[in-house]
Structures are given as structure tokens and as C-alpha cells.
């Protein structure tokens, strides 16, 4: 079972959360996106039990939600005229 994609996804997701906590939002956004891409690959191409798929999809939804918020925040920040 090529679990390396799953492991990669998990690594990326935990790095994303770390960067998020450190307020490196650009990096966190990039890592969340990469993590979801790997998770999606695993769900689509690597046979997992339905239960595992459901929980991976739920994780993706969470990360995507967070990534969208970061993206909004970064866009707003960019627009904000330099103080």
C-alpha cells in the first residue's frame, strides 16, 4: 500500500498548522493547499476503506476552509494602505 502519499499529506498538514500558528500565513496557505492535493490523491487513487475516505474528505474540508480564510486575510492585508 503506497502510504507515502498519505504520510506526505499528513506531514504537509502538520507543517501548515505550525506555520499557521507562527502566523506565516502565506506559507501556511501554500502548505494547506499542498496537503489537500495529496489527501485528495489518496482518496481518489489509493484504495482506502470508506470510513478512511470520509475522514480524509472531512479533513480536506477543514483545511480548505482554513486556507480560504488565510487567503481572504492576506488579500485584505495587501489592500490595506501601508500605515
Amino acid at each position: 500500500m503506497a502510504n507515502n502519499n498519505l504520510q506526505k499529506a499528513i506531514d504537509l498538514a502538520s507543517k501548515a498548522a505550525q506555520e499557521d500558528k507562527n502566523q506565516n500565513y502565506e506559507e501556511a496557505l501554500r502548505l494547506y493547499q499542498a496537503a489537500v492535493q495529496y489527501f485528495l490523491h489518496v482518496v481518489k487513487y489509493e484504495a482506502q476503506g470508506d470510513k478512511a475516505k470520509q475522514s480524509i474528505r472531512a479533513k480536506c474540508a477543514e483545511y480548505l476552509d482554513r486556507a480560504e480564510k488565510l487567503k481572504e486575510y492576506l488579500k485584505k492585508k495587501e489592500k490595506a494602505p501601508p500605515a
Binding site: 496557505l29 492535493q37 482518496v43 481518489k44 474528505r57 474540508a61
Partner: peptide, 23 residues
């Protein structure tokens, strides 16, 4: 309360991912 757990579909994930990537 809207059950958050209604799991998202692969297509929906893919769509959101694309939306994110597009600047």
C-alpha cells in the same frame, strides 16, 4: 444545527482547491 459532518465530495474538494489556487 447543520451537521458539519456532511462530508464534502471529491469534486467539491477539487473545485475549492482550484478556486484557492486561482489568484
Amino acid at each position: 444545527s447543520s451537521s458539519k459532518q456532511a462530508t464534502i465530495s471529491d469534486d467539491e474538494i477539487e473545485r475549492q482547491l482550484r478556486a484557492l489556487g486561482v489568484d
